[in-house]
Amino acid sequence: MSNKNMFMKSAFVRAPLQNGVGRYVCQLQRIVLKFCKSHGGSRGIRDFIEQDLVDFAKQNASVVVYLKPRRHRGPVLVAEYLNGDRVWMNVQNKTHSEITKWMEVLRTQQGDISGARLRKYQYTDYPSVQGPWTPFTFKDPELNVATLPDPKFGANNRLSISATEKLRLMFEKQAISEKDVKTGE
């Protein structure tokens, strides 16, 4: 066992503030687009700003968008979320379409939980006193000591007729009813 998780923040995976129960609240609070006006690596983000930024801002009125031109620096997206997380993403030499996709990813996620040690994989506001459900929850206890295969625990022990036999009988009934229709009875 290693102690690499000792310095990582711990977190639960859950929808903040029961998001989606009543109405959806976008978790992205603000996004800062840092870019250079002349550097070649910033071309994709400049294209995004010229073509799609106004539409993005109109569609996401709850998100504050800042533009920060910087000389001779690489382009960066910095997203800040309602839970206080900040996600920093280098978009050096990314195309306009890639930046559009990354903006959508940043808009739809709830912060950076990839760097967090997860304490539980499930979370509920009302935990069960009976424990979690498993596929073996309602199984017969005799199955624990039985020698398998046992016809007593077989899946087809309740059926008096096999599926093949049932299909054969249905086909015979259908053939008889078609014969009666042809003869006019």
Rank of each mutant, 00 (worst) to 15 (best):
I31S: 04
V32I: 14
V32S: 10
V32L: 13
L33T: 06
L33H: 07
K34T: 15
F35C: 05
F35L: 11
F35R: 05
F35G: 06
C36F: 04
C36G: 07
K37A: 09
K37E: 13
S38D: 02
S38F: 10
G40T: 07
S42T: 06
S42L: 05
I45V: 15
R46I: 04
R46L: 06
F48Q: 05
F48E: 01
I49E: 00
I49K: 01
D52E: 15
D52W: 04
V54Y: 05
D55T: 14
A57E: 10
K58A: 15
Q59S: 13
Q59R: 11
A61D: 10
A61W: 02
S62Y: 00
S62W: 00
V63L: 06
V64D: 04
V64R: 11
V64Y: 09
V65Q: 09
V65R: 10
V65Y: 13
Y66S: 03
L67Q: 14
K68N: 10
P69K: 06
P69V: 06
R70G: 00
R70Y: 08
R71N: 12
R71L: 14
R71Y: 02
H72Y: 08
H72A: 13
H72L: 12
H72V: 06
R73N: 08
P75Y: 05
P75A: 06
V76W: 01
L77C: 03
V78C: 07
A79Q: 01
E80M: 11
G84T: 04
G84F: 03
G84I: 05
V87T: 11
W88N: 09
W88D: 10
W88A: 01
M89D: 05
N90C: 11
V91F: 07
N93E: 11
N93A: 09
K94Y: 14
K94Q: 12
H96M: 02
E98R: 05
I99R: 09
I99H: 10
T100M: 10
W102T: 04
M103E: 03
M103N: 07
E104K: 11
E104Q: 15
V105T: 12
R107S: 03
T108W: 07
Q109A: 01
Q110K: 10
Q110R: 11
G111E: 08
I113L: 14
I113G: 00
G115Q: 09
G115H: 11
A116H: 11
R117D: 06
R117F: 09
L118V: 02
R119F: 00
R119M: 12
K120C: 05
K120D: 15
Q122L: 06
Q122I: 03
D125N: 08
D125V: 07
D125A: 12
Y126V: 13
V129G: 06
V129R: 12
Q130L: 15
Q130G: 02
W133Q: 12
W133C: 02
T134G: 02
F136D: 08
T137I: 03
F138L: 13
F138D: 14
D140R: 05
P141H: 04
E142G: 08
E142P: 03
E142Q: 13
E142K: 15
L143E: 15
N144F: 09
V145T: 15
A146L: 04
L148N: 03
K152W: 00
K152Y: 05
K152A: 12
F153V: 01
R158N: 09
S160T: 13
I161T: 14
I161F: 07
